[in-house]
């Protein structure tokens, strides 16, 4: 598997406080990786380290197979664009001037690229309006536009939808998908807006207390979060026999409770089980969302 970013037991300590420890994550090329965790879980600290803003106290990370203590890491960083916490823009400058400034920082001539990028993020009509007069959504998009200067292969967005209105969230989501599909840009997005992230992410990393506790692909997660019908039956043995015969996906949750995954015709099931001397006492249809999956992963509501 080709990873463009991977970490090995990364740790960051501030005096006696470990912001992250044993942090191991793997980002595949072309993925939209959602880093999920509550506030203070260590997501931003991790992003700051990857972006070179802070140094890890222990552990290593590799970007495009280059180790963080290799001198070449500086060149590899040129392939990264990022927004850490808030978009890094000069508020007293227009969108065009902000992009011109970034072009100069990178060393690009840029005029054609600027127009193209502004169009891409929907800011081509802002004219002489200064960034301080932009809405939060516009600032966020300008931040992304700046991050896109220099054609990065990897975009890192830290809490990109914080403070955005619903329309802004939709616009940003569409932009991320567009960039991922059309330009093949890999994304690392940290957020605690789980449902929003679930609409775009192809991979997830769940962060708790400074550690990644689980990495999972979207396909696997969907499988784990699929619709389930929970039934309480009088005879579990007979029920299991029937489900095996019908090749249905299930698990036995307790002495008399069985979870059946996928679509179930409950009246057919009741009739067939009744002929096997098994009565359904209760049934409940449940769909596990990313949120409930996350809560279960974190060990229940009190830990989230």
């Amino acid at each position: 598997m080709e990873y463009i970013l991977e970490t090995n037991n990364l740790e960051k300590k501030y005096k006696n406080f470990k912001a992250i420890s044993n942090f191991n994550m793997h980002l595949e090329k072309g993925a939209i990786y959602g880093l999920i965790g509550k506030n203070g879980a260590g997501k931003t600290t991790f992003i700051r380290i990857i972006c070179g803003l802070q140094k890890p106290t222990k552990g290593t990370y590799k970007i495009y197979n280059v180790l963080n203590n290799n001198k070449n890491i500086i060149n590899v960083r040129k392939r990264i664009g990022a927004i850490v916490e808030t978009p890094s823009i000069y508020l007293d400058m227009t969108a065009i001037d902000n992009l011109k400034e970034q072009c100069k920082i990178i060393g690009l001539p840029g005029i054609n690229e600027i127009e193209e990028i502004l169009k891409l993020v929907g800011l081509s009509e802002t004219g002489n309006k200064k960034a301080k007069n932009f809405s939060l959504g516009m600032r966020q998009r300008l931040g992304i536009a700046i991050a896109l200067i220099g054609h990065p292969d990897l975009l890192i967005l830290d809490e990109p939808i914080n403070g955005l209105d619903p329309e802004g969230i939709v616009e940003l989501r569409e932009l991320i998908l567009k960039l991922n599909i059309e330009k093949g840009i890999t994304f690392l997005i940290s957020s605690h807006y789980l449902d929003e992230l679930s609409k775009i992410a192809t991979h997830y990393g769940f962060v708790s207390n400074g550690t990644i506790i689980k990495e999972i692909s979207s396909a696997k997660l969907q499988n784990e979060c699929k619709i389930k019908t929970q039934i309480s039956v009088s005879n579990v043995k007979e029920c299991v026999k029937y489900l095996e015969k019908m090749k249905m996906s299930y698990d036995v949750a307790s002495e008399n409770i069985i979870n059946i995954y996928g679509k179930v015709n409950i009246s057919d099931l009741a009739v067939n089980l009744s002929s096997q001397n098994c009565i359904i006492n209760e049934f409940q249809e449940k769909e596990e969302t990313l949120e409930s999956y996350y809560i279960n992963l974190m060990g229940g509501n009190k830990n989230v």
Binding site: C51, G52, L53, I74, N75, V76, R77, K78, I80, G81, A82, V84, E85, T86, P87, S88, I89, Y90, L91, E101, Q102, I105, I106, I146, G150
Partner: peptide, 11 residues
Amino acid sequence: DGVMRNKIIVG
């Protein structure tokens, strides 16, 4: 404005 970060991020 956070622009110092842009310079470091791009290497």
